[in-house]
Nucleic acid binder design. Structure first.
Length: 486
RNA sequence: GCCCCCAUCGUCUAGAGGCCUAGGACAACACCCUUUCACGGUGUAGACAGCGAUUCGAAUUCGCUUGGGGGUACCA
């Protein structure tokens, strides 16, 4: 048995997309499950669209997700370099092999000529296939075209490859997730493998790299199915073993269109900025197309990897809905150790003076505010009254204008006098008594607490009151009560 | 236009001919718990796209239709 080797090959023309992240995750899971290697390769053959910031973003996002690669541009490996632009000298050599074996030929067609052919096919309602008119150019004809200043591209000869390796023109392969897939090879045009500028096209570069990097299993989005047939032919023409392929359904936006910026976050880094925890993101995205055998949906990456079977992955597209992701993020926030949560929360609390509280108090703040939230970013609003002493009472004027409100507040002030604010216990007891006291006057316990909450936080909802009071301390608490009484 | 892929509750899915009066999760709704909001708990509602065929029997197999997605570049 040869070692399983998979790869994720993003092209740095944008930040790491959530769809790419899922493909990376499934490759990673598959590698883990098979005890194989996970390789990262940067596909930057299109210099026009690649930017360093995107390369950085891809690295950072993948690392944040915990999808550590065994080989890649930064860590190296036996098959370096792992950046396509650094491999440009490799491709012509393989193109030449194809040329020599008769599986490729030079094409001198201009964009205009190509476009005209395409238009003609469209008009005739037939599949557009390049005519192959350059395949049989004589040396004189070539010389003449070169003299005109034309530079040739190199095309792959479908017909020759089909004839050499297939009994019929049908190309089939057994997809890891979709089963048998087929395509009539006659409908594939002779595609360009080397551009006239000497750089390889995507379909050629991937094959050369994947075979040189000894990739055994290629798991990618189903938008690559049509490429797969072309690539199989190249592998065969090069005389090497064809790897296994697995095509995943796409992730769609709620309106069933491609997930794009107008739907909100699309890059992993966007989600992190919005307050999603990577654990939740990874867990959620794994559930898009894959289901745990025991029905337990909240799982760590390791647990998922142990239970992962590529053949059981759904072959249909799935829609990215926030509801479940939000719920899951909330679950992770509730379960996360407080120390860890504090680290994740700090960026969202950057505007506040955290020095005001001790480390333990900060942990307590998170403990009492984490329950209802779904996103870390909500922490900013939900903890605001603990950091900002300027309490606005506009939103709670109704609560404070209740006839019993001033009674509650003055009694609160009275009982605060001899109260110990250094721990929550006595506060709980004191306010329980206060509730009892007012209950006898016909004021519901919740109404009593509402007044106190409104006065000290300017809100009608929030964390545990006694914990808040203890955190604020006697001076600040009574100051706020007094301020609200006016 | 042509080619390919896909099709179970609103969403993610379980289901590989009888175990299905189709199960779970999120969302929705109701109730309970509660010092608020929430968390949690209990319950309700909610789907096999349509039509044919195969079979004693089909969500599960096959065909067609419809719908959705993808591809059709000297982009990746």
């Amino acid at each position: 048995m040869t070692e399983t080797r998979v790869r994720i090959a993003p092209s740095p023309s944008g930040n790491l997309h959530i769809g790419t992240a899922r493909t990376a995750l499934f490759n990673y899971l598959y590698a883990k499950k098979m005890g194989g290697k996970f390789v990262l390769r940067i596909e930057d053959t299109d210099a026009e669209r690649t930017e360093q910031q995107y390369i950085d973003n891809i690295f950072d996002s993948l690392k944040a997700l915990g999808l550590n690669w065994d080989e890649g541009p930064d860590v190296g490996g036996d098959y370096a370099p792992y950046t396509q632009s650094e491999r440009f000298d490799i491709y012509p050599e393989y193109a030449q092999k194809l040329l020599d074996a008769g599986f490729a030929y030079e094409c001198y067609c201009t964009p205009e000529e190509l476009e005209a052919e395409k238009q003609a096919s469209q008009a005739n309602k037939v599949a557009h296939v390049y005519s192959g008119k350059c395949e049989n150019l004589t040396e004189e004809e070539k010389a003449k075209l070169i003299a005109e200043g034309r530079k040739p591209a190199i095309r792959f000869s479908i017909k020759k490859a089909l004839k050499a390796f297939h009994e019929t023109s049908e190309i089939t392969f057994d997809d890891l997730v979709k089963g048998e897939l087929k395509q009539n090879g006659d409908l594939i045009g002779d595609f360009v493998i080397m551009k006239s500028n000497g750089t390889p096209t995507y379909n050629f570069a991937v094959v050369v790299d994947d075979l040189l990097m000894k990739i055994t299993d290629i798991i990618r989005g189903e938008d690559h199915i049509s490429n797969t047939f072309k690539q199989i032919l190249i592998y065969e023409a090069l005389g090497v073993e064809v790897p296994r392929f697995g095509h995943l359904g796409m992730i769609l936006a709620p309106d069933r269109s491609k997930l794009s910026k107008r739907h909100g976050a699309t890059a992993v880094s966007d989600f992190i900025k919005e307050g999603y925890l990577i654990e939740a993101l990874v867990n959620f995205v794994a559930l898009l197309g894959w289901a745990p055998s025991d029905g337990v949906e909240i799982k760590t990456v390791d647990e998922i990897a142990a239970d992962f079977r590529i053949a059981e992955v759904s072959s249909s597209n799935s829609i990215f809905e926030y509801d479940k992701l939000n719920w899951m993020n909330g679950q992770y926030i509730k379960k996360m150790p407080l120390e860890e949560l504090l680290e994740h929360a700090k960026p969202f609390l950057a505007e506040y003076n955290l020095e005001r509280y001790t480390h333990d108090e900060l942990l307590r703040i998170l403990e009492i505010t984490r329950e209802p939230i779904t996103l870390l970013s909500e922490l900013k609003y939900d903890t605001e009254y603990l950091f900002n002493d300027d309490i606005k009472l506009d939103e709670v004027s109704e609560v404070l204008s209740a006839e019993y409100a001033n009674d509650v507040l003055s009694r609160t002030l009275e009982i605060s006098e001899g109260l110990d604010f250094s721990s929550e216990e006595p506060l709980h007891e004191a306010f329980a008594n206060l509730r009892g006291e007012f209950k006898e006057k016909g004021i519901k316990p919740k109404e009593t607490m509402w007044v106190i909450r409104a006065a000290t936080t300017g809100r009608t909802r929030g964390a545990d009151m006694c914990a808040i009071i203890k955190l604020l301390g006697k001076d600040e608490f009574t100051r706020r009560i007094k301020a609200a009484m006016n």
